[in-house]
Design a protein around this nucleic acid. Structure first.
Lengths: 148, 148
DNA sequence: CAAATATAGTTACCTAGGTAGTTTTTGTCA
DNA sequence: TGACAAAAACTACCTAGGTAACTATATTTG
């Protein structure tokens, strides 16, 4: 369904429509992804943190985790708290620099990701665009942000 | 700055990168828009509701307002409450159907929008894409959502 | 070496969206 | 007409991101 049919709105220009469309599509996707991940007891950002930790060769401190996330707000701490409560992540205080906190995915965390892996492509809508279309989309989005 | 430089992340595919890029760009835009609107004491969704009410020929009930918004959650009520507290919107109970609440932008609300109008294009990044590019972007975003 | 500065992480308080359930009022229909 | 269903608005409770301020520790520097 095109955004025109979906939203009973008037747009000032094709560009304005695109700006609104980005937000609409982003919300739409996040909603979809959150619903799918809810079956595994995770939210999208919690899932992403787990994947970052699995992808790391060694333990990561919170700063490194933040650098690999879209959002770099202090909420990372709270999100990690929730993962620790669920026994999906382990936390360890660094000995040589006691400010630093090291994080590691737990066995249960890895098992959970293994269960989600077969659904990853579907969660990320893989296949809805061709390679060339995805390239074009990335270029256009980067161009919008480059404008400033 | 391309998303590759910005996020220290690995993408499974060009398509996966595009999916993440949509969310990243959406967050980036919303953040920017919220910062600009904060100068006028508004958040982005509050601003959008005000514009919807101004664009209406007559009073609108809350349901109609929701239909013109991206999000149709019960938060609309709360957002409107805030606008009423700021004296930017007026609320009136319908006489013939007492379930319905009518909304109207106030004089102050119109004055505030008048002050924001000159900045509208800048807030919406008008000009960052050509007409054709915006068209392409809209088509690609619609295609992603059509996939399901 | 002591004071100032920087860094890692956290907390508080603001914003917002989503689902589910509630209240009030209206419409339906057996 | 009297029970039931639908609709409009609202509330509670969950999620999350953003800014600013704060704590604890480490580094710099005068």
């Amino acid at each position: 369904m095109g955004i025109n049919e979906r939203i009973n709105a008037r747009f000032k220009s094709e560009h304005h429509k695109a700006i609104v469309n980005i937000r609409y599509t982003s919300n739409w996707m996040m909603n979809r992804q959150n619903n799918q991940l809810a079956n595994f007891g995770l939210s999208l950002p919690q899932f992403n943190i787990l994947r970052i930790l699995r992808g790391a060769k060694s333990e990561l401190n919170i700063k490194k985790v933040k650098e690999r996330m879209l959002e770099q707000s202090p909420n990372t701490t709270r999100l990690i708290d929730k993962l620790i409560t669920k026994d999906l992540v382990e936390r360890r205080r660094c000995d040589s620099d006691r400010r630093i906190v090291f994080l590691k995915i737990s066995k249960e965390g890895e098992k959970l990701l293994d269960r989600i892996d077969p659904h990853f492509d579907e969660i990320n809508l893989e296949g809805s665009l061709s390679f060339e279309e995805a390239q074009t989309l990335n270029a256009l989005l980067d161009k919008i942000r480059a404008d400033v």
